[in-house]
Design a protein around this nucleic acid. Structure first.
Length: 414
RNA sequence: CGGGGUGUCGUAUACCGGUAGUACGCUUGAUUUGGGAUCAAGUAGACAGGGUUCGAUUCCCUGCACCCCGACCA
């Protein structure tokens, strides 16, 4: 992509009404646009990051047996009344509206009810199970207060997978597979080292749920980490009894603030019974389908990366999620030789299927470097006085390290 | 929802009860070209409504928006 053609605009200063670092940087670098409090649009650069994150998640979900689908954003009142979660007293984040033709609808803040209700038409026998389906959906939540920029908005993209199994034993298999898949995701997007599997409250359904918590001072949760075992306990269930149950020693735990970047749940059979989602087992007996749900906030992950990986110059994208692999910065100016050299390198890399943002603009070096630092692509190739036809200056964004690389090395470097 | 704060060109800001200024951006021209260049000319603004006042962007009220703390976050 030629930067002269890219729809974006960097800003020297952040808007005065944004205090959170993730929103400041993402707006300044031209990744997101703020529509209103807690509601952000994703511009081409930001969308590329989102899609990269989604693709990593998609690959891991598919590998674990998940099948992608997409549910609706409009939901039926009657369905949510069945599980007693329609009233504003029970769920205070509902956006609701009425149909012109008559009747009430809700805007999707979660999809357990509709997706499980739908399953009634498809899951009738133990032969139909297990089923693992997931989607990437925009969730709408009427939060009393939006905060922390993109981290906690009223509109956000979430991956939610639902597992339908015959019993606890079958459920355990997918649940363990999901824990592994989630850990793969966080490792691949670059948050693996600071993201911990965390024991948390299971709400009304089970003793525990598991969260994935990324250590950050802007987080809203407090966790206690065992750095050797790489697991943690959320403050909400941090008791001697729970520690003993999990086998953690209090003295070894480190307290930290953290961002919840994922949450997986064991619902058991109770919700299925409420909804009438039953199947016949081998003996012909009618049983409730065993339900699990697995959430992962895509936009929140993007904001978390912006928050924890950035420096005073701007964003620093991990290789797995960066909008481009290389930022090719041409300092050719009026020098036709340099321009041709940059053009040729851009063509070569692009034809090899490598994503390159090519800063072919007329701007001066300082502005280009500042923009490049702000946008945060992992590797910057500088075509200028230090380059030749065969060797190029390459700067690593995260470390600032500069080295010289050949075209072949650029093509193979990964 | 409770408490606190803020609304001035596209962005960041200044001043002021009496002609709203600066920087960046943007437009045009010239000179520049390895870390946000220089010069010149131009462009563009007081959240909305009401009140006080000879006169309100400024003071007061209401609304709206945004930010922060808390509460909330299956």
């Amino acid at each position: 992509m030629r930067q002269s053609q890219l729809f974006t605009k960097t800003r020297r200063e952040a808007p005065a009404d944004e205090v959170s670092k993730n929103a400041q940087l993402l707006i300044r670098a031209g990744f997101v646009y703020k529509e209103m409090a807690g509601v952000y649009a994703f511009l081409p650069l930001g969308l590329r990051v989102l899609e990269n994150i989604k693709n990593i998640v998609r690959e891991e979900m598919n590998a674990a047996g998940g099948q992608e689908l997409i549910m609706t954003a409009l939901q039926r009142k009657e369905l949510w009344e069945k599980t007693d979660r329609w009233s504003d007293e029970k769920v205070d984040v509902w956006f609701k509206s009425t149909l012109s033709a008559g009747g009430d609808v809700g805007f999707a803040w979660s999809h357990e009810e509709p997706i499980s209700d739908m399953m009634k038409g498809y899951l009738e026998s133990y032969r139909d199970l297990p089923v693992y389906v997931y989607q990437f959906q925009t969730k709408l939540r009427n939060e009393l207060r939006a905060k922390s920029g993109v981290l906690r908005g009223r509109e956000f993209v979430m991956k939610d997978l639902y597992s339908y199994t015959t019993d606890a034993a079958q459920h355990k298999e997918i649940y363990e597979a999901m824990i592994q898949a989630y850990q793969n995701v966080y490792r691949r997007i670059g948050l693996g080292d600071i993201t911990f599997l965390t024991f948390a409250s299971g709400g009304a359904f089970t003793q525990f749920s598991h969260e994935f918590q990324t250590v950050s001072d802007v987080g809203e949760d407090i966790i206690y980490i065992d750095t050797e075992k790489r697991i943690a306990v959320n403050k909400e269930v941090y008791t001697d009894e729970v520690l003993a149950h999990i086998g953690l020693e209090k003295e070894k735990l480190i307290e930290a603030k953290s961002i919840e970047v994922g949450n997986i749940f064991d619902f058991g059979g109770s919700k299925s019974e409420q909804l009438g989602l039953m199947f016949k087992d081998e003996t012909g007996a009618l049983k409730p389908v065993y339900l699990g749900s697995y959430g992962l906030g895509i936009t929140r992950v993007m904001a978390t990366i912006a928050e924890v990986m950035s420096d005073d110059k701007g964003l620093v994208w991990p290789e797995g999620v960066s909008p481009f692999r290389y930022h090719l910065v041409s300092l050719a100016g009026a020098d036709e030789t340099l321009r041709a050299r940059a053009d040729q390198l851009y063509d070569t890399l692009t034809e090899a299927g490598i994503s390159v943002l090519y800063d072919d603009r007329e701007q001066r070096a300082g502005e280009k470097f500042a923009d490049s630092d702000l946008i945060g692509i992992p590797f910057r190739i500088v075509v200028g006085k230090n380059s030749t036809d065969t060797s190029f200056e390459v700067v690593t964004r995260s470390s600032g390290e500069t080295r010289t690389m050949s075209k072949d090395e650029l093509l193979q470097h990964s």
